[in-house]
Design a binder for these strands. Structure first.
Lengths: 344, 344
DNA sequence: GAAACCTACGAAACCCTTTTCGAGAACTCT
DNA sequence: AGAGTTCTCGAAAAGGGTTTCGTAGGTTTC
């Protein structure tokens, strides 16, 4: 039973190729990499031999010599969170096209574990690190004594001299309100999530700004509690009880918005005719399945991942970090669906 | 401006440590790794020096020599899919404790890209590969000519001589029905998703088996269409129209179940008193926010990830693959909530 | 005081590839 | 025919660490 390729034994080395092709190792190397002076005939012979025995250059040896590995570490504090995934995709995307591979490390939100993972990444000589947090609250810096550049995505670093990229939640809040205003609404309430999240306050601030700019005021105070449908249902009931005249509700998350929609339906209010509803996050499984489909704010997380990768690339390059430090707030995007504008 | 640690330049090498500690490289190596004969005094001096200049052993050099890198490739065909994530976590978990790091590669469901990523992983001399698919349908094998062991997770390989791990959807279908039966239900309908998915048919088969074993029949045929709330709503309306006496509905996904719940509520049927509803996947954001909370089948994906990692470990070890080939169907789990049993 | 033995350390080989530089061969030119 | 070019190729070093083996020095034993 002999298959075409040898199994369970690692690919041949360059010296084996060289021996079989009856040339020196150096010539074999040059032939395969298309460098140096090698006659066409020799090159052909070497490449043929390499193909025949399934030669795969050992990237370790190459990296050792080059001083760069072409790998980056993706250090996330919480894989479970649904925000890291699109970021991860974007980063993988931006790198993947080239020669860079990604080490994925999940620290489970544990600082000790994170230090452990960091050490492991440095031992493996990654060329750079992206740190992805689960919330937009600022997180401790990894410090500046690291031998590789670091970019913080989603959760910015507390240290302003680090490079951080995070979605612009304030602009998101404004965008939501501006959309509701442009739909002719003016009696607007705001139901949002856990007050321990910076995102909740940032978005609420944006909401207030946009209302203020239009000379309007929020109906009641922003309602904080938790990021759940249940809270959305309960809060909507309270809001409508205290302010029966609201014609729009801006929500801090799509889950909350789903709960709000439920309550409105139970109370016989039509959406969007009587009350317009807008969510946040554009979590497709929630927005496109809602009745009616839910208008929402999309944080462009995949784009954020790509930008993070690009920023890291830049920092890894020859002339790194020329004033690109600090927190960059990336623009968010409005996705309009049936919960704010009636279908024709 | 001189910080404690040198920045932007890679950690010192062993020879620098050796020079500063006035010993040879070999002695330094032995001192740091606790091997060989080194006097206590010398060891202390070397370790101290290493700490002082922030020496970090170069894993590349080590791997090159050892012939093993302590890395594995995680080749997923679709990062977006929500099933790969827990699997990935489980695998990361099982490896992370040790010295193994994970290369994450997303092939975007593209076979060409997959081959590309595979080549890259082999160049990097990973010790093994886990292939994670997005559906439970069988996928083409990567072949047996690879120099490293491969384990297929979620989507099994078409080749029965590969090692595959996938959730037992048939058992899941049975489990759902057995639970409904034990709740005293007997007039059961089945609404499920896209008929091009093996998962839909496997679960439907399990449903039929369990009903048959109890001497019962399904109310109507299993209803296939798509994995969405919308379909759940529409299908429930149809089912109740044709079989007004159903006292339980087994759903092919939590999304479908959410839609079913909506329709039941609209039609004034009480859940679970009049009709019990069970979902599938145990997607927490959907199940715990439903009214009432949704009973569901959990595929234990994180466990599946861990098992995959373990299987790979075994295959990477000294005596690999002794009859562990083939598709292993991992057990699923029932999670009971208010949609099948009334809260006290 | 010589033989036997330990201990602590260092020299060198090895892992695999790339790159530099030098050497021989073939060829051209005068 | 000798000098100068141009090609083609190989020897050797480098990259950073581990491991084997040899050796110098000191200690014990008879």
């Amino acid at each position: 039973m002999h298959e075409g390729q040898p199994a369970s034994t690692y690919p041949a080395t360059l010296s084996e190729v060289a021996k079989l092709a009856r040339v020196s190792v150096s010539t074999a190397s040059k032939a395969i990499n298309g460098r140096g002076d090698v006659s066409e005939e020799t090159r052909r012979r070497v490449v043929e031999t390499a193909d025949r025995i399934g030669f795969t250059p050992n990237q370790l040896a190459r990296s050792l010599l080059a001083g760069r590995t072409g790998t980056v570490g993706l250090l996330t504090s919480d894989l479970e969170g649904r925000f890291v995934l699109p970021i991860l995709m974007g980063a993988e995307d931006a790198f993947g096209a080239g020669q860079v591979n990604v080490f994925l490390c999940d620290a489970r939100g544990d600082a000790i574990r994170e230090q452990h993972q960091l050490k492991a990444l440095l031992k493996r000589r990654v060329d750079g690190i992206i740190v992805v947090g689960r919330q937009t609250d600022a997180r401790p810096s990894l410090g500046h004594s690291l031998p590789v550049p670091v970019v913080y995505a989603y959760a910015p670093s507390e240290d302003p001299s680090d490079v951080s990229l995070t979605p612009d939640n304030e602009a998101g809040g404004r965008l939501a309100i501006e959309h509701l205003l442009s739909c002719g609404r003016s009696r607007i309430g705001h139901i949002t999530g856990d007050p321990s999240y910076a995102a909740a306050h940032d978005r609420a601030r944006g909401v207030r700004q946009a209302l203020g700019a239009a000379g309007l005021e929020l109906r009641g105070e922003p309602m904080f509690s938790e990021w759940s449908e249940r809270w959305g249902r309960d809060a909507a009931a309270m809001l409508l009880d205290q302010h029966p005249d609201v014609d729009a509700i801006a929500c801090g998350s799509d889950q909350i918005a789903r709960g709000v929609l439920d309550t409105l339906r139970d109370l016989g209010r039509r959406v969007p005719e009587d009350v317009a509803v807008i969510g946040y996050d554009n979590w497709e499984v929630l927005t496109t399945n809602a009745r009616p489909e839910l208008t929402s704010i999309d944080a462009n997380l995949q784009q954020l991942g790509r930008e993070s990768a690009l920023a890291l690339f830049k920092a890894m390059g020859p002339n790194p970090a020329q004033g690109t430090d600090g927190v960059r707030h990336l623009p968010v995007r409005l996705v309009i669906r049936g919960s704010t504008i009636a279908r024709r």
